[in-house]
């Protein structure tokens, strides 16, 4: 598509919620009618297929397409829930050189013809896989936990986006969004956790959203359901709000969340905090 957009989901640090967020955001974009593909760049350690619930349908992968061992349409897995959602799984090869810039460029260009949103799920670290995932990105969603090592690594990856991305090398800038995950307002109040404002002040990146620490995230990944397609829960609505912001659309989540509002009111009534 002429207005295709390449977005990388990255963090530097591992285990902060990159794959969960890729699945949640990709599924939500598709649910809103945007043709979306999510790509797993974690070559050797693929996991996006599991989080998306399509692990038993993987036949060909990203590297097969790069090496012309399969066509793109053979490797793309169509989601069974959302007709606009596709997954390009990572390979499990241990060959570190499998991911080359020319090959990645070829696949991204092909995907741009068919998709509105191309979401690249970066592996942790700042090695080849992570560099390849961010190289063609026009926008970056930086996943950060309110915790010192995650914030520091996010700052590091922002530096890499500013120097090693294609846009940066051409003298432009990758548009960056901050998505704070595993957040607990109750712990901030007790002085045990960095606040949203603290993290924003340190990283100086526009805030896309804040995902509360939620038991629903593990439950969704256990079942292979992107959290935004799961039953109503707090993390789901936080991701939906983040996608609204990404699209520059007004918030719509509240209309469809009567059940959740009711639950929330119950909690306030009982004086419980998350």
């Amino acid at each position: 598509m002429a207005d295709a957009k390449v977005i990388v989901v990255t963090s530097g640090k591992g285990g902060v919620g990159k794959t969960t967020s890729t699945a949640a955001i990709g599924a939500e974009l598709a649910r809103r009618g945007k043709k979306t593909v999510v790509i797993d760049f974690d070559i050797g350690l693929r996991n996006l297929d599991l989080i998306m619930g399509c692990e038993r349908r993987v036949i060909y992968d990203f590297i097969n397409v790069i090496n012309d061992e399969a066509t793109l349409s053979q490797a793309l897995i169509k989601d069974k829930r959302e007709p606009n959602l596709y997954i390009l799984p990572a390979s499990q090869t241990r060959n570190k050189d499998a991911l080359q810039q020319e090959g990645v460029a070829k696949v991204i260009e092909l995907l741009k013809k068919d998709f509105k949103y191309i979401i690249c799920d970066s592996p942790a670290g700042i090695e080849r896989g992570a560099l390849m995932a961010l190289y063609y990105a026009e926008e970056a969603i930086i996943i950060t936990n309110p915790e010192v090592s995650s914030v520091r690594d996010s700052d590091r990856i922002i530096g890499v986006l500013n120097s090693d991305s294609k846009l940066a090398k051409e003298g432009h800038e990758v548009k960056k969004h901050l998505l704070i995950t595993r957040f607990s307002q109750a712990r901030v109040k007790r002085g045990e956790m960095l606040s949203i404002e603290d993290i924003q002040e340190i990283l100086a990146v526009d805030l896309l959203g804040v995902i509360p620490e939620s038991q629903a995230v593990l439950s969704a990944s256990n079942q292979g359901i992107p959290i935004t397609l799961d039953v109503d829960n707090d993390a789901k609505f936080a991701y939906r709000a983040a996608v609204s912001k990404l699209l520059g659309e007004p918030e719509v989540a509240q209309q469809s969340s009567k059940g959740w509002n009711f639950l929330k009111n119950m909690r306030i009534f009982k004086g419980e905090t998350v």
């Binding site: 010192v148 530096g159 007790r190 960095l194 606040s195 603290d198």
Partner: peptide, 21 residues
């Protein structure tokens, strides 16, 4: 609070990191 200690430590480490990189 431990959160304000975290913020101070991060501000220092991030400014060093930015200078080095």
């Amino acid at each position: 609070s431990s959160a304000s200690t975290a913020k101070e430590r991060l501000q220092i480490v991030v400014s060093h990191q930015r200078a080095n990189n």
